[in-house]
Structures are given as structure tokens and as C-alpha cells.
Amino acid sequence: MFSRTRYVFRETFDSFRRNATLTIASIITAAISLLGVGLTLLSQEGFDNLLSKWEGGVEMIIFMRPDVTDDQRALIESSLDQNNQFIESWTYCDVDCSLAERDRVLAAEPGVKDLLNADNIPTQYKAVPTEATDVQLLRQVSEAFSEGPGVFEVVFAEDQISLIEQLQSFFGFRLFLLSGFLLLAAILLIWNTIRTAIFARRREIEVMKLVGATDWFIRVPFMLEGLLHGVIGGALASLGLGIWNSQWTSGVQGFPPNSGFASLVVTSGYDKTVMLYMLIIGAVAGAIGSGIAASRFLDV
């Protein structure tokens, strides 16, 4: 077993060395495409953060003053219920809920974040309108609410969501498509590199087959080689993503507070998850490319 492991690694690294140009090309392509995949995931998460207060079809938020009384709240709630031909459902986001949302949305604006605390943060009613209620109608309904007791302000999704969603789908789709193509290119390059490696060793392979080496024994070094291309590509992409995210984070801190861009910063370890994804996708891409090459070109 030891002799076998040694053999596999010796062959794999030999092949790396002999095939240096192609190997580097396929690793770089894999790295760039995986970075694309990673940035897509990361930016989507950022946009999701930005949109998180509008989750679940919420179209209108009534912010209440921090000093709102229970009576005032009861009044708002009963008028929300009375308006059930316009308002499908609503939820109340209390102090804890609003603080949690603050932590998420203002992660990169510590200055602004710290200004909001349990004593001064507005609590929120999030209302989902019925199908039939269009924005105009909702605005009219809201007039009444903005005049209501204890109300701080009323905000509409329409004004904030559409731009963000446009941006999200614009970047998301194109980045995703681009990284998809690049990933395909990476697989093809890995495939071609392994094919070349197999061709370069056809004499060895012929001898191996004649003396009775098993197919797997012959295949494994080649597959390992392709797998390593993908994993190294994924590792480089992770490094790139780490650098990108930290630069973005510090860049965003220079933006005017409350501009909204701050929520585009991804914290909470999601960046680590994305790095793990990139390693896994890289390994899978490498395995696919080299696996196809190995099974196609090693046939007796």
C-alpha cells in the first residue's frame, strides 16, 4: 500500500512538472471562474441583506416612535385589521427584532449602528398588501396611518426595492452566466491537460496494461492530477475572494452613511462558506474534467 501511494504521488507530480504550461493555464482558468462564482454568491447575499426588510412580500412598513404606548399600538393594529380589503397580513417587529435587523443591515456602518439602541430604535409593522391593492391605493391607505398616533414614518417597498432588485438581477445573472462559461472552460482545459498528460505517457500506459496493472491503478494519478488543478484553483479563488471582501468592506465604510451600500458587506462567516463552495466546486470540476479524459483515453 505504501509503495502504491508513493507511486501515485510520484506520477502525479512528475506530470505536473512535465506539463507545466498547460497545468498553470488550467489552474488559472479554474481560479478565475471560481472567483466569479464566489463573487456572484457573495454579491447576491449582499443584495439579499439589503432586501431583507422586505422579505415575504412586505410592501409597506410603518415605523413607530420608540416611545410608542401600548394604546397607540392597539389602535394601529385594529386599523390594520379593519383595512383587510387592502392588507392581506401584517407582522410586528418589536425592539429585539428591530435590533437584530439593525445588526444585519448596518454591519458595515458601526457608527450608525451604535447610534441605534433599544431605547431609541423604531419598532415596525410590516404589511403585506392583497393582490388587488396597487401602489397608488396603498399610498392612500397609508395616508391615514402616517397621521396615526405614535407613528414615526411610513415607508414603501416600491421606492427602494425596484432599484435594488434590478441591480441584483443584472449583476447576478450576468456574473453567473460568465462564471458558468468560465467554469466550462476550466473543465475543458483540465480535460485537455489530462489528455495531453495521458498522451505523453502512452508508452508507460501500454507497458502497465501489458504487465497487468488495473485500470484504476492507471487512472488514479491522472484523476488526482485533475482534482488538484480544481482544488488549487479553488484555493487561489478563495484567497482572491478574501482580499476582495476585505477591500470592499473598507471601501464601503467611506460611503455616506445610510446610503444603503453598507448592507452589501457580507460578514457573519458567509464568506467562509462561499470559499468552501469554491473549493468543492473546483474539486468537482477537476474530477469531471480528468475523469472524462481518463475514461475516454485509457481504454484498451
Partner: peptide
Amino acid sequence: AFAQEVIGRPQHVI
């Protein structure tokens, strides 16, 4: 030695 390595013969045998 190659003919023995690739069928998994241990080094001491080789």
C-alpha cells in the same frame, strides 16, 4: 521494477 510497482508489489520484494 516498473513491472512490479504497477501491480502493487512492495518495495522490499522489488
